[in-house]
Simulated assay, not measured.
Amino acid sequence: MEGRRIVIHGGFHKTGTTSAQKFIFDNGPLIWPHAATVLPGRTRARVARHAVRYSVGNAQPDLNRFRRGLAEVLGGLNLGKRAVLISDENLSGRMPGREGQAGYGGAPDLMAAMVRVIRRFMEKDADIHFVFTTRDPEDWLRSTWMHNLRTSRLTLNFENYAEIHSDTADFDLVIQDIRAAVAPYPVHTARIEALADNPEGPAAPLIQLLGIPTEKRMRMGGLTRANIGPDPALAPQLLDLNRSSLANDVLMERKAALLDSLSPKT
Score class of each variant (00 low, 15 high):
G3D: 15
Q237W: 04
D125V: 14
I128Q: 09
R135T: 06
A183C: 12
R225K: 14
L173V: 13
I207T: 03
S143M: 01
I118N: 02
V131Y: 00
L141G: 03
P236N: 08
L223S: 00
P232M: 09
I207A: 03
L141K: 06
G10L: 03
R68W: 11
E163G: 14
H165R: 11
I31S: 01
T133W: 05
R217F: 02
R254T: 09
I31M: 04
A20G: 03
T168D: 03
S87Q: 00
A20F: 05
V7Q: 03
I86G: 04
P202M: 12
S261V: 13
A181T: 03
R116W: 03
G75M: 04
L239S: 09
D125P: 07
A20C: 11
K22T: 14
A102Q: 01
I178H: 05
R191Q: 09
E193S: 07
T189C: 04
L223F: 05
E2H: 11
H129I: 08
S87P: 00
E123H: 01
T15Q: 07
A180W: 06
G106W: 01
G93T: 04
H147A: 02
M95L: 12
P29H: 14
A162L: 10
P264H: 15
S244W: 11
S143G: 11
L246K: 01
P232I: 08
K265Y: 13
N78H: 11
V52E: 08
A83K: 08
P61V: 11
I207L: 10
Y104I: 01
T134V: 13
G10R: 00
N227W: 09
N148C: 12
P236E: 13
V52H: 03
L154V: 00
D167Q: 15
E253M: 14
R116Y: 08
L173Q: 15
G229I: 11
R153P: 08
V52Q: 08
R49A: 05
R142W: 06
S87A: 04
A226Q: 15
I86A: 06
H9L: 03
S244H: 07
D260W: 00
T266Y: 11
K255E: 06
K14F: 08
A169W: 04
P199E: 12
M114N: 00
T43W: 04
G222Q: 14
D177R: 14
V174T: 15
P232E: 07
R68D: 13
F158P: 00
D231C: 08
L39W: 02
L258K: 06
K22M: 06
L110M: 12
R153Q: 06
I118S: 09
A35Y: 12
A226K: 15
R67W: 11
P40L: 15
V38N: 00
